[in-house]
């Protein structure tokens, strides 16, 4: 029982991330409205970012900014313990991932506007009907 409890405490948030990802994925696949799909896409991406960030998390450690880096003398700078600082690498990766996701989001929004301009709707089923209406492909 305690094993299970420690397991839950140690892992529960990974499970919740998975749930979050799946909410996003479900919205991307099953939602009818294109904007909703985009929201799903963003949820999916942020959930992954969350996953990465939590890889980097370390108990009893502080943010990855070295204190007194330039403030003290040389002896001071020498005592940096890796255990005291959170792993900066996932943060770096996720900064990049966030930028990528916002870029994709922007482009997707622009496309959604274009689609709406052309078909006056963003619902997938209606779009499919419009596509049938405009006839065979050129």
């Amino acid at each position: 029982m305690t094993d299970l409890l420690t397991l839950i405490v140690a892992k529960y948030n990974y499970w919740l991330y998975v749930i979050l990802m799946m909410i996003g994925l479900y919205a991307m696949i099953a939602k009818n409205n294109l904007i909703k799909k985009l929201v799903g896409m963003n949820i999916f991406q942020t959930a992954i970012i969350l996953f990465y960030v939590s890889i980097g998390y370390k108990r009893d450690a502080t943010i990855p900014i070295i204190q007194n880096a330039h403030g003290g003398n040389d002896t001071h700078a020498a005592v940096i313990h890796a255990v005291d600082y959170i792993n900066p690498l996932p943060h770096v990766l996720m900064l990049t991932a966030i930028v990528v996701s916002v870029a994709t989001f922007g482009v997707a929004m622009a496309l959604a506007v274009r689609v709406y301009q052309r078909y006056q709707t963003l619902e997938e089923d209606e779009l499919r009907m419009r596509l049938v209406d405009i006839g065979p492909e050129k």
Binding site: N42, I63, H91, V102
Partner: peptide, 19 residues
């Protein structure tokens, strides 16, 4: 909360802001 201040900062400006 997890100590990813830079990421949080970015998300605050991007996710909650510009997006």
């Amino acid at each position: 909360v997890m100590g990813a201040v830079d990421v949080a900062f970015t998300e605050a400006s991007v996710g909650a802001g510009v997006s």
